[in-house]
Design a protein around this nucleic acid. Sequence first.
DNA 1: GTCTATATCTCGATAGAC
DNA 2: GTCTATCGAGATATAGAC
Lengths: 188, 188
Amino acid sequence: MPGGTVGRRSDTRERIQHVALELFVEHGYENTSLREIAERLDVTKAALYYHFRTKEDIVHSLIADLVTALDELLDWGRQRPSTVETRQELLRRFSALVADRFEPVMHFIQQNIPAVKKLGVMHPLGEKLRELFALLCADVDDPEAALRTRLALVALVLGLNPIFGGAQATPPPDVALDVALELVAPRG
Amino acid sequence: MPGGTVGRRSDTRERIQHVALELFVEHGYENTSLREIAERLDVTKAALYYHFRTKEDIVHSLIADLVTALDELLDWGRQRPSTVETRQELLRRFSALVADRFEPVMHFIQQNIPAVKKLGVMHPLGEKLRELFALLCADVDDPEAALRTRLALVALVLGLNPIFGGAQATPPPDVALDVALELVAPRG
DNA sequence: GTCTATATCTCGATAGAC
DNA sequence: GTCTATCGAGATATAGAC
Protein backbone atom coordinates (compact mmCIF):
# COMPACT_ATOMS: atom_id res chain seq x y z
CA MET A 1 0.00 0.00 0.00
CA PRO A 2 2.27 2.74 -1.26
CA GLY A 3 -0.12 5.58 -0.67
CA GLY A 4 -1.49 4.25 2.57
CA THR A 5 -1.43 6.26 5.78
CA VAL A 6 -0.82 3.37 8.14
CA GLY A 7 0.47 -0.14 7.63
CA ARG A 8 4.07 0.99 7.17
CA ARG A 9 6.36 -1.89 6.35
CA SER A 10 9.31 0.47 5.92
CA ASP A 11 10.15 4.15 6.02
CA THR A 12 11.31 4.34 2.42
CA ARG A 13 8.51 6.69 1.44
CA GLU A 14 9.49 9.21 4.10
CA ARG A 15 13.14 8.87 3.19
CA ILE A 16 12.34 9.61 -0.43
CA GLN A 17 10.40 12.73 0.57
CA HIS A 18 13.24 13.90 2.77
CA VAL A 19 16.04 13.34 0.28
CA ALA A 20 14.03 14.70 -2.62
CA LEU A 21 13.21 17.90 -0.75
CA GLU A 22 16.87 18.21 0.22
CA LEU A 23 17.93 18.03 -3.41
CA PHE A 24 15.11 20.26 -4.65
CA VAL A 25 16.34 22.95 -2.26
CA GLU A 26 19.98 22.38 -3.21
CA HIS A 27 19.70 22.39 -6.99
CA GLY A 28 16.11 23.22 -7.80
CA TYR A 29 13.25 20.99 -8.89
CA GLU A 30 14.08 20.85 -12.58
CA ASN A 31 17.79 20.31 -12.00
CA THR A 32 17.12 17.33 -9.75
CA SER A 33 16.67 14.04 -11.59
CA LEU A 34 15.13 10.91 -10.19
CA ARG A 35 18.50 9.30 -10.80
CA GLU A 36 20.11 11.70 -8.32
CA ILE A 37 17.45 11.07 -5.72
CA ALA A 38 17.77 7.33 -6.15
CA GLU A 39 21.56 7.46 -5.94
CA ARG A 40 21.57 9.44 -2.70
CA LEU A 41 19.14 6.89 -1.26
CA ASP A 42 21.19 4.03 -2.68
CA VAL A 43 18.25 2.53 -4.52
CA THR A 44 17.29 2.54 -8.19
CA LYS A 45 14.96 4.86 -10.04
CA ALA A 46 12.40 2.12 -10.43
CA ALA A 47 12.10 1.81 -6.67
CA LEU A 48 10.96 5.42 -6.48
CA TYR A 49 8.14 4.65 -8.86
CA TYR A 50 6.78 2.08 -6.48
CA HIS A 51 6.20 4.77 -3.84
CA PHE A 52 5.33 7.71 -6.08
CA ARG A 53 3.55 7.56 -9.40
CA THR A 54 5.47 10.52 -10.81
CA LYS A 55 8.13 13.03 -9.89
CA GLU A 56 5.38 15.61 -9.53
CA ASP A 57 3.66 13.41 -6.97
CA ILE A 58 6.60 13.80 -4.63
CA VAL A 59 6.10 17.55 -4.62
CA HIS A 60 2.37 17.16 -4.15
CA SER A 61 2.95 15.07 -1.04
CA LEU A 62 5.35 17.65 0.37
CA ILE A 63 3.02 20.57 -0.16
CA ALA A 64 0.01 18.69 1.17
CA ASP A 65 1.59 18.46 4.61
CA LEU A 66 2.14 22.20 4.66
CA VAL A 67 -1.41 22.94 3.56
CA THR A 68 -2.75 20.71 6.31
CA ALA A 69 -0.69 22.49 8.94
CA LEU A 70 -1.78 25.89 7.67
CA ASP A 71 -5.38 24.75 7.81
CA GLU A 72 -5.03 23.83 11.46
CA LEU A 73 -3.50 27.21 12.17
CA LEU A 74 -6.41 28.89 10.40
CA ASP A 75 -8.94 26.79 12.32
CA TRP A 76 -7.50 28.12 15.51
CA GLY A 77 -7.42 31.69 14.24
CA ARG A 78 -10.98 31.68 12.91
CA GLN A 79 -12.56 30.91 16.26
CA ARG A 80 -10.73 33.64 18.10
CA PRO A 81 -11.78 37.26 18.50
CA SER A 82 -10.21 39.58 15.98
CA THR A 83 -7.81 41.38 18.26
CA VAL A 84 -4.22 42.52 18.07
CA GLU A 85 -3.31 39.74 20.48
CA THR A 86 -4.85 37.12 18.19
CA ARG A 87 -2.97 38.46 15.21
CA GLN A 88 0.32 38.49 17.04
CA GLU A 89 -0.28 34.96 18.29
CA LEU A 90 -1.00 33.93 14.70
CA LEU A 91 2.37 35.30 13.71
CA ARG A 92 4.06 33.47 16.58
CA ARG A 93 2.47 30.17 15.61
CA PHE A 94 3.25 30.67 11.95
CA SER A 95 6.83 31.46 12.86
CA ALA A 96 7.08 28.32 14.99
CA LEU A 97 5.50 26.23 12.25
CA VAL A 98 8.08 27.35 9.73
CA ALA A 99 11.02 27.02 12.12
CA ASP A 100 10.04 23.62 13.47
CA ARG A 101 8.80 21.69 10.47
CA PHE A 102 8.42 23.57 7.22
CA GLU A 103 11.51 25.62 6.67
CA PRO A 104 12.76 23.37 3.84
CA VAL A 105 9.41 23.31 2.07
CA MET A 106 9.01 27.07 2.32
CA HIS A 107 12.54 27.41 1.04
CA PHE A 108 11.73 25.14 -1.87
CA ILE A 109 8.51 26.93 -2.75
CA GLN A 110 10.05 30.38 -2.64
CA GLN A 111 12.84 29.41 -5.02
CA ASN A 112 10.90 27.23 -7.44
CA ILE A 113 7.81 29.21 -8.28
CA PRO A 114 7.59 28.09 -11.91
CA ALA A 115 7.65 24.43 -10.89
CA VAL A 116 5.12 24.98 -8.11
CA LYS A 117 2.84 26.84 -10.50
CA LYS A 118 3.11 24.18 -13.17
CA LEU A 119 2.19 21.43 -10.71
CA GLY A 120 -0.99 23.25 -9.81
CA VAL A 121 -0.29 23.29 -6.10
CA MET A 122 -0.20 27.07 -6.06
CA HIS A 123 -3.96 27.37 -5.79
CA PRO A 124 -4.61 25.37 -2.59
CA LEU A 125 -1.51 26.87 -0.99
CA GLY A 126 -2.36 30.38 -2.14
CA GLU A 127 -5.83 30.07 -0.65
CA LYS A 128 -4.47 29.28 2.79
CA LEU A 129 -1.97 32.09 2.66
CA ARG A 130 -4.65 34.48 1.46
CA GLU A 131 -6.84 33.50 4.39
CA LEU A 132 -3.98 33.85 6.86
CA PHE A 133 -3.37 37.28 5.44
CA ALA A 134 -7.06 38.11 5.73
CA LEU A 135 -7.11 37.15 9.40
CA LEU A 136 -4.04 39.27 10.02
CA CYS A 137 -5.61 42.17 8.17
CA ALA A 138 -9.06 42.20 9.77
CA ASP A 139 -10.29 45.73 10.45
CA VAL A 140 -7.47 47.11 8.34
CA ASP A 141 -8.35 49.10 5.25
CA ASP A 142 -5.29 51.30 5.03
CA PRO A 143 -3.18 49.96 2.10
CA GLU A 144 0.04 50.86 3.90
CA ALA A 145 -0.98 48.83 6.93
CA ALA A 146 -1.88 45.96 4.62
CA LEU A 147 1.56 46.08 3.04
CA ARG A 148 3.18 46.13 6.47
CA THR A 149 1.20 43.03 7.36
CA ARG A 150 2.51 41.30 4.28
CA LEU A 151 6.03 42.33 5.18
CA ALA A 152 5.53 40.85 8.63
CA LEU A 153 4.94 37.46 7.02
CA VAL A 154 7.89 37.98 4.72
CA ALA A 155 10.12 38.84 7.67
CA LEU A 156 9.49 35.39 9.10
CA VAL A 157 10.76 33.61 6.00
CA LEU A 158 13.24 36.20 4.75
CA GLY A 159 16.20 34.20 5.98
CA LEU A 160 15.30 31.65 3.33
CA ASN A 161 15.50 34.19 0.53
CA PRO A 162 18.99 34.33 -1.01
CA ILE A 163 18.37 37.61 -2.80
CA PHE A 164 17.49 39.96 0.00
CA GLY A 165 17.75 37.42 2.78
CA GLY A 166 21.14 35.97 2.04
CA ALA A 167 22.60 39.36 1.22
CA GLN A 168 24.15 39.19 4.67
CA ALA A 169 23.92 37.10 7.80
CA THR A 170 20.52 35.62 8.48
CA PRO A 171 18.68 37.35 11.31
CA PRO A 172 17.90 35.20 14.36
CA PRO A 173 14.29 33.98 14.37
CA ASP A 174 13.45 35.94 17.50
CA VAL A 175 14.59 39.19 15.90
CA ALA A 176 12.46 38.43 12.86
CA LEU A 177 9.49 37.71 15.10
CA ASP A 178 9.96 40.96 17.02
CA VAL A 179 10.02 43.00 13.83
CA ALA A 180 7.01 41.11 12.49
CA LEU A 181 5.01 41.67 15.66
CA GLU A 182 5.79 45.36 15.48
CA LEU A 183 4.68 45.56 11.88
CA VAL A 184 1.17 44.37 12.67
CA ALA A 185 0.85 46.44 15.83
CA PRO A 186 -1.12 49.68 15.54
CA ARG A 187 1.12 52.61 14.69
CA GLY A 188 2.13 54.99 17.50
CA MET B 1 29.15 41.06 -35.28
CA PRO B 2 26.73 39.28 -33.00
CA GLY B 3 28.20 40.53 -29.76
CA GLY B 4 28.94 43.99 -31.01
CA THR B 5 27.64 47.12 -29.34
CA VAL B 6 27.13 49.17 -32.45
CA GLY B 7 26.83 48.28 -36.11
CA ARG B 8 23.29 46.97 -35.70
CA ARG B 9 21.92 45.64 -38.93
CA SER B 10 18.74 44.47 -37.20
CA ASP B 11 17.17 44.33 -33.78
CA THR B 12 16.90 40.57 -33.64
CA ARG B 13 19.22 40.31 -30.66
CA GLU B 14 17.06 42.64 -28.59
CA ARG B 15 13.92 40.87 -29.71
CA ILE B 16 15.38 37.57 -28.59
CA GLN B 17 16.23 39.03 -25.19
CA HIS B 18 12.75 40.45 -24.83
CA VAL B 19 10.86 37.33 -25.84
CA ALA B 20 13.14 35.03 -23.89
CA LEU B 21 12.68 37.06 -20.72
CA GLU B 22 8.95 37.09 -21.31
CA LEU B 23 8.87 33.29 -21.49
CA PHE B 24 11.29 32.83 -18.61
CA VAL B 25 8.91 34.85 -16.43
CA GLU B 26 5.85 33.01 -17.75
CA HIS B 27 7.04 29.43 -17.45
CA GLY B 28 10.43 29.55 -15.76
CA TYR B 29 13.91 29.20 -17.20
CA GLU B 30 14.04 25.41 -17.28
CA ASN B 31 10.55 25.04 -18.70
CA THR B 32 11.33 27.37 -21.58
CA SER B 33 12.99 25.68 -24.54
CA LEU B 34 14.85 27.43 -27.31
CA ARG B 35 12.24 25.96 -29.60
CA GLU B 36 9.51 27.96 -27.83
CA ILE B 37 11.53 31.15 -27.99
CA ALA B 38 12.21 30.63 -31.66
CA GLU B 39 8.57 29.85 -32.41
CA ARG B 40 7.30 33.00 -30.69
CA LEU B 41 9.82 35.00 -32.72
CA ASP B 42 8.91 33.10 -35.86
CA VAL B 43 12.47 32.05 -36.55
CA THR B 44 14.30 28.75 -36.07
CA LYS B 45 16.41 27.60 -33.17
CA ALA B 46 19.55 27.85 -35.24
CA ALA B 47 18.95 31.56 -35.72
CA LEU B 48 19.14 32.05 -31.97
CA TYR B 49 22.57 30.48 -31.94
CA TYR B 50 23.85 33.13 -34.28
CA HIS B 51 23.13 35.81 -31.67
CA PHE B 52 23.82 33.86 -28.47
CA ARG B 53 26.35 31.10 -28.00
CA THR B 54 24.18 29.25 -25.48
CA LYS B 55 20.86 29.48 -23.70
CA GLU B 56 22.73 30.53 -20.58
CA ASP B 57 24.25 33.43 -22.49
CA ILE B 58 20.82 34.95 -22.94
CA VAL B 59 20.39 35.09 -19.18
CA HIS B 60 23.88 36.49 -18.73
CA SER B 61 23.10 39.33 -21.08
CA LEU B 62 19.88 40.12 -19.23
CA ILE B 63 21.51 40.19 -15.81
CA ALA B 64 24.48 42.20 -17.03
CA ASP B 65 22.23 45.16 -17.82
CA LEU B 66 20.81 45.06 -14.29
CA VAL B 67 24.24 44.86 -12.69
CA THR B 68 25.39 47.86 -14.72
CA ALA B 69 22.40 49.91 -13.64
CA LEU B 70 22.92 48.94 -10.00
CA ASP B 71 26.55 49.94 -10.28
CA GLU B 72 25.58 53.39 -11.47
CA LEU B 73 23.18 53.73 -8.57
CA LEU B 74 25.94 52.70 -6.17
CA ASP B 75 28.38 55.16 -7.74
CA TRP B 76 25.96 57.92 -6.95
CA GLY B 77 25.35 56.68 -3.43
CA ARG B 78 29.01 56.22 -2.55
CA GLN B 79 29.93 59.85 -3.12
CA ARG B 80 27.14 61.19 -0.99
CA PRO B 81 27.16 61.83 2.74
CA SER B 82 25.72 59.00 4.79
CA THR B 83 22.49 60.64 5.85
CA VAL B 84 18.88 59.58 6.13
CA GLU B 85 18.12 61.71 3.08
CA THR B 86 20.72 59.87 1.02
CA ARG B 87 19.32 56.52 2.06
CA GLN B 88 15.80 57.51 1.22
CA GLU B 89 16.88 58.87 -2.13
CA LEU B 90 18.67 55.56 -2.75
CA LEU B 91 15.37 53.78 -2.16
CA ARG B 92 13.55 56.17 -4.48
CA ARG B 93 16.05 55.61 -7.26
CA PHE B 94 16.05 51.87 -6.76
CA SER B 95 12.27 51.87 -6.87
CA ALA B 96 12.28 53.88 -10.10
CA LEU B 97 14.91 51.60 -11.61
CA VAL B 98 12.79 48.54 -10.97
CA ALA B 99 9.54 50.12 -12.08
CA ASP B 100 10.95 51.67 -15.25
CA ARG B 101 13.27 49.06 -16.68
CA PHE B 102 13.96 46.00 -14.57
CA GLU B 103 10.68 44.71 -13.28
CA PRO B 104 10.71 41.65 -15.57
CA VAL B 105 14.31 40.76 -14.76
CA MET B 106 13.72 41.11 -11.03
CA HIS B 107 10.62 39.00 -11.43
CA PHE B 108 12.63 36.38 -13.27
CA ILE B 109 15.45 36.32 -10.73
CA GLN B 110 13.14 36.06 -7.76
CA GLN B 111 11.33 33.07 -9.19
CA ASN B 112 14.25 31.18 -10.71
CA ILE B 113 16.87 31.13 -7.99
CA PRO B 114 18.20 27.66 -8.82
CA ALA B 115 18.80 28.63 -12.44
CA VAL B 116 20.37 31.94 -11.49
CA LYS B 117 22.64 30.19 -9.01
CA LYS B 118 23.67 27.54 -11.50
CA LEU B 119 24.60 30.13 -14.11
CA GLY B 120 26.97 31.79 -11.69
CA VAL B 121 25.40 35.22 -12.04
CA MET B 122 24.42 35.25 -8.38
CA HIS B 123 27.82 36.43 -7.27
CA PRO B 124 28.15 39.68 -9.25
CA LEU B 125 24.50 40.48 -8.60
CA GLY B 126 24.74 39.57 -4.92
CA GLU B 127 27.73 41.86 -4.52
CA LYS B 128 25.82 44.85 -5.80
CA LEU B 129 22.81 44.12 -3.63
CA ARG B 130 25.06 43.61 -0.63
CA GLU B 131 26.67 46.98 -1.24
CA LEU B 132 23.32 48.67 -1.70
CA PHE B 133 22.26 47.14 1.57
CA ALA B 134 25.48 48.32 3.20
CA LEU B 135 24.89 51.90 2.07
CA LEU B 136 21.35 51.76 3.41
CA CYS B 137 22.59 50.33 6.69
CA ALA B 138 25.47 52.71 7.40
CA ASP B 139 25.67 53.63 11.08
CA VAL B 140 23.16 50.91 11.89
CA ASP B 141 24.24 48.11 14.20
CA ASP B 142 20.86 47.18 15.67
CA PRO B 143 19.85 43.85 14.05
CA GLU B 144 16.18 44.84 14.08
CA ALA B 145 16.92 48.01 12.17
CA ALA B 146 19.00 45.98 9.72
CA LEU B 147 16.09 43.65 9.13
CA ARG B 148 13.74 46.57 8.61
CA THR B 149 16.14 47.91 6.01
CA ARG B 150 16.02 44.60 4.19
CA LEU B 151 12.26 44.63 4.34
CA ALA B 152 12.29 48.10 2.82
CA LEU B 153 14.02 46.68 -0.25
CA VAL B 154 11.64 43.74 -0.29
CA ALA B 155 8.65 46.06 -0.14
CA LEU B 156 9.74 47.60 -3.44
CA VAL B 157 9.69 44.28 -5.27
CA LEU B 158 7.03 42.47 -3.27
CA GLY B 159 4.43 42.97 -5.96
CA LEU B 160 6.49 40.60 -8.10
CA ASN B 161 6.35 37.83 -5.53
CA PRO B 162 3.38 35.50 -6.09
CA ILE B 163 3.58 33.93 -2.64
CA PHE B 164 3.26 36.88 -0.33
CA GLY B 165 2.96 39.51 -3.02
CA GLY B 166 0.26 37.99 -5.16
CA ALA B 167 -1.75 36.86 -2.17
CA GLN B 168 -3.99 39.82 -2.92
CA ALA B 169 -3.98 42.91 -5.05
CA THR B 170 -0.55 44.38 -5.72
CA PRO B 171 0.09 47.56 -3.77
CA PRO B 172 0.62 50.69 -5.85
CA PRO B 173 4.31 51.55 -6.24
CA ASP B 174 3.93 54.79 -4.31
CA VAL B 175 2.45 52.98 -1.32
CA ALA B 176 5.35 50.55 -1.38
CA LEU B 177 7.79 53.42 -1.53
CA ASP B 178 6.14 55.17 1.40
CA VAL B 179 6.34 52.08 3.56
CA ALA B 180 9.94 51.49 2.49
CA LEU B 181 10.94 55.06 3.32
CA GLU B 182 9.38 54.71 6.73
CA LEU B 183 11.22 51.47 7.39
CA VAL B 184 14.63 53.07 7.00
CA ALA B 185 13.69 56.22 8.89
CA PRO B 186 14.84 56.41 12.52
CA ARG B 187 12.21 55.09 14.89
CA GLY B 188 10.04 57.54 16.79
C1' DG C 1 9.75 -3.75 -2.62
C1' DT C 2 13.47 -3.56 -5.36
C1' DC C 3 15.92 -4.84 -9.37
C1' DT C 4 17.61 -4.75 -14.77
C1' DA C 5 16.62 -3.25 -19.09
C1' DT C 6 14.53 -0.41 -22.21
C1' DA C 7 11.11 2.58 -24.63
C1' DT C 8 10.23 7.22 -25.83
C1' DC C 9 10.79 11.88 -25.82
C1' DT C 10 12.74 16.48 -25.77
C1' DC C 11 16.39 19.25 -25.19
C1' DG C 12 20.67 22.01 -26.27
C1' DA C 13 23.87 22.38 -29.67
C1' DT C 14 26.34 21.82 -34.35
C1' DA C 15 27.20 21.32 -39.52
C1' DG C 16 26.74 23.15 -43.71
C1' DA C 17 23.74 25.13 -47.57
C1' DC C 18 21.93 29.49 -49.12
C1' DG D 1 21.51 36.02 -40.82
C1' DT D 2 18.59 32.47 -41.34
C1' DC D 3 17.58 27.97 -42.92
C1' DT D 4 17.25 22.31 -42.90
C1' DA D 5 18.81 18.35 -40.86
C1' DT D 6 20.78 15.84 -37.39
C1' DC D 7 23.55 14.30 -33.30
C1' DG D 8 24.11 12.85 -28.66
C1' DA D 9 22.93 13.30 -23.94
C1' DG D 10 19.88 12.80 -20.34
C1' DA D 11 15.21 12.94 -18.80
C1' DT D 12 10.69 10.52 -17.20
C1' DA D 13 8.39 6.53 -17.13
C1' DT D 14 7.30 1.46 -17.96
C1' DA D 15 7.78 -3.85 -18.36
C1' DG D 16 8.70 -7.76 -16.23
C1' DA D 17 11.89 -10.80 -13.39
C1' DC D 18 12.95 -11.87 -8.60
